[in-house]
C-alpha cells in the first residue's frame, strides 16, 4: 500500500518537475479545438452543432500525445525492471501510474473544456454535460492509451503505432461522450449516455490494468 502511494507521489512529483510537458498537452488540446472554426467558417449555428464533437476529438488526440511515452522512460532507465520486482502487483502499479497521468494531463483538459465550449457557443448546461462526459471518459482514454504504450514499448515505430492501435478502440468513448452533449441539446437528456460512460469506465478500470501489466511483461521480457 505504501509502495502504491509512493509510486503515485513520485509520479506527480516528476510531472511537477516537468511542468512544461503538461502545458504542451493542454496547449495542443486548445489549438486543435480552435482550428476547426478556421477550417469550417464561423457560422454560430454550425459551431454549436459540432462543438461537443470537436472538443471530444481534440481531447482524444491530446491524451494520446502524452500517453505514448507513459512507460518509455521507465523502460529506458531501468525503473520498469524495479517495478516488476517491487512488492506491488504490476497491474496496481500500472493503475497508479495511469491514475497519476490522468490527474496531471486529463484533469487540466476537463478544466479547459468550458472555455472551448464558450468559443463554440454551447449553453451553460451543455458545457456542464460536456465536462461531466470528459471526466467520465478521459480515464478510459488513458487506460486504452496505456495499453498501446505498453504494447509498443521500445519499438522504433512506437510513436505512430499507438494511435493506430488505440484510436479504433476509443470510438465508443467518443460516441458516448459527444453523444451525451448532443442528446442534451436535442432535449433527449444526457443521463443514459453518461450512465453508459460510467459503466464503461468501471469495466475498464477493473480490466485494463491487468491487460496493461501483461503487455508490459510481454514487451520487457
Amino acid at each position: 500500500m505504501n509502495a502504491l502511494v509512493a509510486i503515485m507521489r513520485f509520479e506527480l512529483l516528476l510531472a511537477w518537475r516537468r511542468k512544461s510537458a503538461l502545458a504542451t498537452t493542454l496547449g495542443f488540446f486548445v489549438i486543435v479545438a480552435s482550428l476547426f472554426p478556421l477550417g469550417l467558417g464561423a457560422d454560430p449555428q454550425l459551431l454549436r452543432l459540432i462543438g461537443s464533437g470537436v472538443v471530444w476529438v481534440a481531447a482524444l488526440l491530446a491524451t494520446l500525445l502524452g500517453l505514448a511515452r507513459l512507460f518509455a522512460a521507465d523502460h529506458e532507465d531501468g525503473t520498469l525492471e524495479q517495478l516488476r520486482l517491487s512488492c506491488v502487483p504490476l497491474p496496481l502499479a500500472a493503475l497508479a501510474k495511469i491514475g497519476a497521468h490522468w490527474l496531471v494531463t486529463a484533469v487540466p483538459l476537463c478544466l479547459a473544456a468550458p472555455i472551448l465550449g464558450l468559443q463554440y457557443g454551447l449553453s451553460a448546461s451543455a458545457i456542464g454535460v460536456l465536462v461531466a462526459s470528459l471526466v467520465l471518459g478521459t480515464p478510459v482514454l488513458c487506460l486504452l492509451g496505456a495499453m498501446g504504450a505498453a504494447l509498443t514499448l521500445g519499438l522504433r515505430a512506437g510513436g505512430v503505432l499507438v494511435p493506430v492501435l488505440v484510436l479504433p478502440l476509443e470510438v465508443p468513448v467518443l460516441i458516448m461522450g459527444a453523444g451525451s452533449v448532443e442528446a442534451h441539446m436535442n432535449g433527449l437528456g444526457a443521463g443514459p449516455w453518461l450512465s453508459l460512460l460510467a459503466a464503461l469506465l468501471i469495466v475498464f478500470v477493473l480490466a485494463t490494468p491487468w491487460v496493461v501489466a501483461f503487455a508490459l511483461r510481454i514487451s520487457s521480457e
Binding site: N2, A3, A6, I7, F10, L13, L14, R17, R18, A73, E76, D77, G78, T79, E81, Q82, L83, L85, S86, C87, V88
Partner: peptide, 28 residues
C-alpha cells in the same frame, strides 16, 4: 531478492536521496 541491472533505475529529475527513497518504497 535485490536486483540491479545494467540501467541504474535512476530518475533524472529526482535527486540522489529521492531516488533512493523511491527505490526503497518500491521494495517495501
Amino acid at each position: 531478492l535485490f536486483y540491479l541491472g545494467h540501467a541504474s533505475a535512476l530518475k533524472d529529475d529526482l535527486d540522489a536521496a529521492e531516488n533512493l527513497e523511491l527505490a526503497c518504497s518500491l521494495a517495501a
